[in-house]
Design a protein around this nucleic acid. Sequence first.
DNA 1: TTTTGAGTTGTTCGA
DNA 2: GTCGAACAACTCAAA
Length: 469
Amino acid sequence: MRPSPAIVWFRRDLRLFDNPALGAAAASGAPLIALYVLDEPAMAAWRPGAASRWRLHHSLASLARDLAALGVCLVLRRGAADLALEGLIEQTGATALYWNRLYEPWAVRRDGEIKARLRARGLRVESFNASLLFEPATLAKAYRVFTPFWRACLASPEPATPLPARERLAAAKDVAGDRLEDWRLLPTRPDWAAGFREVWRVGESAARERLQEFAGASAADYGAARDAPGQEGVSRLSAHLHFGEIFPRQVWHEIAAQVGERGAPFLRQLGWREFCHHLLFANPDLPERPLGGRFQRFPWRRDDEGFCAWKKGGTGYPFVDAAMRQLWRTGYIHNRARMVAASFLVKHLLLPWQEGEAWFWDTLIDADLANNACGWQWVAGCGADAAPYFRVFNPVSQGEKFDPEGAYVRRYVPELAGLDKKFIHRPWEAPREILRAAGVILGETYPRPIVEHAFARKRALEAYAACRD
DNA sequence: TTTTGAGTTGTTCGA
DNA sequence: GTCGAACAACTCAAA
């Protein structure tokens, strides 16, 4: 008699290598059914944004190809996951279900219910960690300060080494599912993803190649090079990590093997990703409400025009505008520029951090609920271990310090490309003839600053003072 | 329980 | 141009 099949439910673990759920299912000897469910009802307000859908499409296509090469078909279903699972179980007679855990509040709730219900019906249901170095449950307490959190992580058992690759899988009989194209995750009219296709490679093999490249070339200098958005000093692994095309423990061990102690500054950044996930796990309303309670009464402004200028990259501050246009064109912003652009919305325009969070959610290909919420709260000063309120980034000096040649600005704000580095971060101070020679007409080809820095800084400090206890 | 020390990423001003 | 201090107070971690 043919053994009954097992379902491997893929979620944000879109890889075959070092995938604990897949490994356990395969080791059980059962023929496998690979499933992905686009469960938008469960995600409610936090279903993937437009850029993330583009990224998801290609990641799923890549996973389906890799599975097909091993003779397994990826079954796609859309709608509530519990219904999709029950339907598939009925259809196939599956008696086991394996998945890797998620930590978003909606997922924790949903998965807990599914696990209880199916186990009560006699199914074998098992879940695994496949996306964190240190799961929340492994630490004794919920930390709110990064440094002691990371110390505690480093003092706990080291992340396990990656599982060996699997060369063969036993496939169950084919099951019908949706066609990926029919999910319409890709933009059509207009097709705004051209810039994405130029910059990004998607999928598990691309993730592993990127890691090799980074570990071999830049990881050792990461501490010094990571702040220069005009260079390639960062890992660009964020989207691969979000979709689970790579397990952070692969990164951990690869960095340790190739650069040893010099890899510590980069691993510490992975630590921030861990910290954000822990914080969201302990504070389910982190994406909506400030952690610091007194920020509930912060005097945010309304300013549709300013918000629009920020989104379009038309604030008149080249470094901020470069960041926002990099986002629009490529679905990504370099970390340093991301902080400065976010700070500008919150502190210079005094607009609610949640509005910036929503915009990033829609436009980032690495949009991640925990990281995004944490980052915005940090910038706004209300998060855990946040920037003190009196720390207001100066978009000009940040630009001059971290993009001294103006390479980043020139790439994303081409109408300023003709300006010398002396003025590229402050075109409004350039003499008339220099502007003319560079083909810049302030107010026409490039905007004047929509708010003056010194004024905005003072206004922000007063606003923050007003919501003190 | 109480106390003490520390805490991702800055800016500005004045000497 | 460079340097140090002030910014303002608070919460958390750990002894």
